[in-house]
């Protein structure tokens, strides 16, 4: 029961705090531009304003467009509930299987791209297809990195992997570390931040599939996209850097775990903010070269795994 409460709190806080993450990124971007910039709470104000606006859809759109934003949020809540955050183990273990997580990310992607086509807008559709192709390019790297981690830890559960790493009983540590690097890069690409925000790469594609959304639907997507980024970062932390999280349900442990988790998230946020403000967007047709490079890192990890070191 206590685990379920933790999971529920995680899911709700994920929804409530996701705009803060994107707000901090906006604030940081303004500082890099030497602008005064909005406050870190600006995204909450934007969302509140959008919720009051009319929900406008194009005249050819169907229920797919209507259900996509809440579905996206729902999937991220479910993933957030299963992900070990303050704790080392997963609050709901059957949601923390690596294969389930990867395929659960495909569910919102399916509807995200479908809603682009559904709007009847050529640009939104193109943005959706780019999102899907990014998925095909990055999924092999994600899978191979997690495959290596699973073999090294002897389990496919994110929480159990974290426990193995915490206890130092990983079989081939070098392979595991390299897999961690590959996974981190793959996660970064999957987050859709610069230089990989390809779904909106051209002038006409601004916002990609989001461009036909408005009002509450757009507000929900403004919550959902940073949620996905936090979920991916949490997954990386839970598998590869579980140190400091609570190993049991004691109050002190949980408190320390929460603080440590927030610190890790802030560090990751800073790293991603620095990266996205230092680079320009990759040209669409060259994205494949970079994703294959990530795959090569994952293959290295696998080679070390076969060698057993």
């Amino acid at each position: 029961m206590a685990e379920f409460i933790i999971a529920l709190v995680q899911g709700i806080l994920l929804v409530l705090l996701a705009p803060l993450a994107s707000g901090i990124a906006r604030w940081f971007r303004a500082k890099v531009h030497t602008r005064k910039g909005p406050s870190i709470f600006q995204d909450y104000r934007d969302i509140a304003k959008l919720l009051k606006r009319q929900d406008v859809h194009s005249n050819v759109s169907s229920r797919v467009s209507r259900i996509m934003p809440p579905l996206y949020i729902g999937c991220m809540i479910v993933l957030g509930m299963g992900m070990p955050m303050a704790t080392r183990f997963s609050p709901i273990p059957f949601l923390a299987d690596i294969i389930l997580v990867i395929y659960m990310l495909a569910l919102p992607r399916f509807f995200f791209a479908l809603s682009g086509i559904d709007s009847g807008d050529a640009y939104a559709g193109t943005g959706g297809v780019r999102e899907l192709i990014m998925g095909t390019l990055i999924e092999p790297s994600l899978m191979l990195a997690l495959f290596v981690a699973a073999i090294a830890c002897g389990t496919t559960n994110v929480g159990t992997m974290g426990q193995m790493v915490g206890a130092g009983t990983v079989q081939s540590p070098i392979a595991f570390v390299i897999a961690g690097i590959a996974f981190a890069v793959a996660c970064y690409i999957e987050m859709g931040k610069l230089p990989y925000d390809e779904a909106e790469a051209e002038q006409e594609l601004q916002e990609g599939p989001l461009q036909e959304l408005s009002g509450p639907s757009l507000a929900m997507m403004h919550i959902a996209v940073p949620m996905k980024q936090v979920v991916l970062a949490s997954m990386f932390v839970a598998i590869f850097l579980p140190f400091g999280s609570a190993v049991d349900l004691s109050v002190a442990g949980l408190a320390v775990g929460t603080v440590v988790y927030l610190v890790k998230m802030v560090v990751i946020l800073v790293v991603t903010m620095v990266i996205e403000n230092c680079v320009s967007r990759v040209r669409w047709k060259f994205v494949g070269h970079q994703t294959w490079f990530v795959f090569a890192i994952a293959v290295c990890a696998f080679a070390f795994c076969v060698l057993g070191i």
Binding site: V56, S58, A122, G215, P216
Partner: peptide
């Protein structure tokens, strides 16, 4: 969450306009 957001949003729904075409 969808129910909560629907209850909070007051703008109604429109399915009038054509899709945007630059």
């Amino acid at each position: 969450p969808w129910g909560i957001i629907k209850a909070k949003s007051t703008g109604g729904v429109s399915e009038e306009p054509d899709p945007w075409a630059c």
